[in-house]
């Protein structure tokens, strides 16, 4: 892939932090400030969600964000254009559009890619488009130097994981546990071997996501993955800050608090020590995951 932003992403030798945010939640300007805060806080890429009436892969937090945005009629086009505005204001890490397939289908693939190219999109993630259905879209992405982000789950069988991982672009998204997006206390029992296996097979960095809401949780995966994705925890923080975002005199303080929150999410240690720490914790996870998730 010739995309320079992805090159920088894959050449980084750190435990990458990739946040998810819902585009235009609560509004376009605030989203731009949030994206800049995420980048300043260490984001190596940003997943930009698109509100959808029926988000099958999402838990309550992201569902609520979707509904908030739909009350303002936010469309896929709006979110693509938001990405363009983010670029103009200085966002330089890869931006991945996270959209359900129906939204893309209605906009039309041609129009989608036209807008995606114009607005500096680097990747596309479609949570309800599994490997079997994605060949066409992946090719369209490749033709434009964009990454079609593939997902694998703890339930993905060996052969299939191999097939997906060896054909992945950008990064391989490893789902940490069964279920939809949302904060969790524990992860799938086989998460460590699953991630290790994914790392072995994958030609791109392996990132783990779903349910991670703190840097200590993330660190459990440092030895067996190349980075982590945080979604619901961030969207929930934004939700909590909504009243302050909407008041002129409170905005600055709210952004400051958001930045502080992001700093807490990003582990401070250099990656060598992370690896070491992970040896123990990854085993701990196994023990914990026998218990229930919340």
């Amino acid at each position: 892939m010739n995309n320079s932003r992805w090159k920088r992403f894959s050449n980084k030798n750190s435990f990458r932090f990739v946040p998810y945010m819902m585009g235009c939640d609560p509004d376009r300007e605030t989203s731009i400030e949030i994206a800049l805060a995420l980048q300043e806080g260490g984001a190596e890429a940003i997943e930009l969600g698109v509100p959808y009436s029926d988000p099958l892969a999402d838990g309550p937090v992201i569902q609520r964000a979707s509904q908030r945005c739909l009350e303002n009629d936010v469309s896929l086009t709006d979110v693509l254009e938001l990405a363009g505005a983010m670029r103009e204001r200085g966002v330089s890490v890869p931006v991945i559009i996270f959209t359900y397939y129906n939204l893309l289908l209605q906009l039309g693939e041609n129009r989608f890619f036209e807008l995606a190219e114009k607005n500096g999109i680097d990747g596309v993630l479609v949570p309800d488009l599994p490997f079997e259905e994605s060949a066409g879209l992946k090719k369209s992405c490749r033709d434009r130097d964009m990454a079609f982000i593939s997902l694998v789950a703890p339930t993905t069988r060996e052969e299939r994981l191999k097939e997906i991982a060896q054909d992945a672009d950008g990064f391989l998204y490893c789902i940490s546990s069964m279920g939809v997006t949302g904060k969790r206390a524990a992860f799938a029992g086989n998460v460590k071997s699953f991630l290790a296996n994914a790392q072995e097979q994958s030609r791109v960095p392996v990132l783990v996501g779903f349910g991670i809401s703190s840097s200590s949780q993330a660190m459990q995966f440092a030895g067996v993955s190349d980075g982590y994705i945080v979604g619901s925890a961030i969207v929930e923080k934004i939700e909590a800050l909504l009243p302050r975002f909407s008041q002129e005199q409170e905005r600055e303080g709210a952004i400051r608090e958001f930045k502080y929150f992001i700093n807490q999410l990003v582990p401070a240690q250099p990656e060598k020590e992370c690896n070491h720490a992970a040896e123990n914790t990854a085993d701990d996870i196994k023990a914990v995951s026998a218990g229930k998730t919340d």
Partner: peptide, 22 residues
């Protein structure tokens, strides 16, 4: 074999349930 009736049907679901569908 992809579960299609012409252009309709298919499996538009999260990866997590693909093995269960199989």
């Amino acid at each position: 074999n992809l579960g299609r009736y012409g252009r309709y049907g298919g499996k538009y679901v999260p990866e997590t349930v693909m093995s269960a569908l199989a």
